[in-house]
Design a protein around this nucleic acid. Structure first.
Lengths: 329, 329
DNA sequence: CTGAAAGCGCTTACAG
DNA sequence: CTGAAAGCGCTTACAG
């Protein structure tokens, strides 16, 4: 296998020192003839400097991106969007997947802090006191995505407001008894804020009898919680913390011969394309995940450049009306 | 903001030189008392060495992973699986998303080659002559995922065989006229091999009248190609290169009042969970993407250790029988 | 077991 | 405009 080509090799071939080649890449002054020559050689060898060897550079032009998983639709949207913005700005994304483990998440943050990244985008599973302690000593700017972060800068979704909007919408259908299929409170944004919004929205419309459940984010969990809800007697409406959970609800309701929305209304959060495939189409609420990623990355780079940024930004959401909520009652 | 802590800082605090701290981390000989002391200090400061500063190390313990997109279900499964294996082995994944651009993919490969990674996992959009040229000069081992790679090592799916199995299955339903909704030939595995398998499988069962289409991987494309197929007269069976395309077919057939499978059989590839939600459930074929990632990573690390590896490995697939193919004809 | 020194691939003042 | 030198955070022979 061939040896790796380095900046020194390029310099030799161009008959200059690596100082000059380095300046060529970093926008320092380089003579026209020299520039030509270097240009030719790097093209021939397809050379690009090793970003990670820039140990002495003031800026590394690398941003760390910590994500809870690479398997989630929402996260995929966020990192794709973050990646695009960073690329446009000449930055590279260093993606760290925590694979659903909070210890790995903390470790990932810890590592990035000591690596030469210019900043960190943290799409956290949940912000624990350990997170706060760790981030307090962070030598580079941090932007938290999709979770509130009192101690610093965040770009979030209005989980409470969205929940409330959905609660009201479903409340309009006047269910006698509703169920909320949620997730564990360790995820503050979804587990607590979103749920509270839904409950408040329902109450505003006079719906007070609400069963609440908490599971994980899986399709199976949606099925399981739906079954649990039905065991406790008749339910008119099921609001699910995510579309995937709603998919599970659809299946169980179908198995039991319960019609949507005539017998039971169903609603979700997420706006997954697949909701469109259901009969009836799922009523859901879609957060602008692309905006979340974009704004997060933009805010981080502003912080790197020491420009002022808002402490908190909230992205928009959009209600997608399917036919799964009974509006004729 | 606090300064970054470095190995030299740790060494100072422990009253030794950084040589010793480095040996501590890399398994060199360190006295018991010294070991204790260093242990304490790194715990207190949560220190971990900067992986990317290991410029002189023989091995970086980093593997590059190039993916066409972070938005695809299959890719998500593959990188999750790759990440898990690498982590178990004390390796780190450096993920490079090409965001559907072949130029970016080449650039990503190029960059990784010059960065200090021990090897590269390439989940390529397609292998072009440029890929071959570039990879020929690669200073580190490369494993190609999900595409044949004559010039080197690959872990693939049996796209042809899987296509043929599906072709035969649908052929058993004796459609008078079938349609295949595919993708561009630039993706060799899916665009050519899978399609050819389907066509051959159908032919084996006596189905020769097959309309073929090519689009992209989107839901919209599935709808569009289905509409095109129906314009050309009645069609009994639609085989789609991916489940997403099949979702599009479902929608259009539904809109036209055509029943699945009574009027038209539909089949896909992918085994997405969402196929289960459809009525009837989608008949689909699922490749073992987790095995693909796992084996790919395992093979790469073997190559790094200069152990022998097979030139080509093929992962298994599984037929998932839904109710979308009419078996009563 | 431990340290001094050289070096990895790059960047940055500082001279000239 | 260009180069020599020092340095980034780490690793590795080589002495002792």
């Amino acid at each position: 296998m061939p040896r790796k080509i380095t900046m020194a090799d390029i310099a030799d071939m161009a008959g200059v020192t690596k100082s000059t080649v380095s300046r060529f890449f970093n926008g320092g002054s380089v003579g026209d003839a020299t520039r030509q020559k270097i240009q030719e050689i790097i093209r021939e060898y397809n050379y690009e400097p090793n970003t990670f060897a820039r140990l002495k550079a003031r800026e590394s032009n690398v941003a760390g991106v910590v994500v809870p998983s690479l398997n989630s639709k929402i996260t995929s949207r966020v990192v794709t969007s973050v990646g695009r913005y960073l690329r446009e700005q000449g930055y590279e994304a260093l993606i760290k997947d925590s694979d659903h483990s909070i210890e790995r998440e903390l470790k990932n943050i810890q590592r990035l802090m000591l690596q030469n990244v210019d900043g960190i985008l943290l799409s956290s599973i949940t912000i624990t006191p350990e997170h706060v302690r760790l981030l307090k000593d962070c030598p580079v700017p941090v932007v938290v995505l999709a979770q509130d972060f009192e101690q610093g800068i965040s770009v979030t979704q209005d989980d409470y407001g969205a929940g409330r909007a959905m609660g009201r919408l479903v409340g309009e259908s006047h269910p006698r008894r509703a169920a909320y299929l949620g997730v564990d409170e360790s995820d503050r944004a979804v587990g607590i804020d979103r749920r509270q919004g839904v409950l408040d929205g329902l109450r505003e419309k006079g719906v007070a009898d609400v069963l609440t459940f908490a599971g994980d984010y899986s399709y199976q969990s949606g099925q399981h919680m739906t079954a649990l809800a039905l065991e406790q007697g008749p339910v008119d409406a099921i609001i699910c913390a995510t579309d995937r959970l709603a998919f599970g609800a659809y299946r169980v309701l179908d198995e039991r011969g319960l019609r949507i929305p005539e017998d039971v209304s169903v609603a979700g959060f997420g706006g997954y394309d697949e909701g469109e495939l259901l009969k009836p189409r799922l009523t859901t609420l879609k957060f602008d995940s692309y905006a979340l990623g974009y704004l997060g990355a933009e805010t981080l780079l502003k912080m790197v450049r020491e420009e002022p940024v808002p402490k908190k930004q909230i992205v928009d959401y959009q209600m997608i009306l399917g036919g799964s909520v009974n509006m004729n009652r």
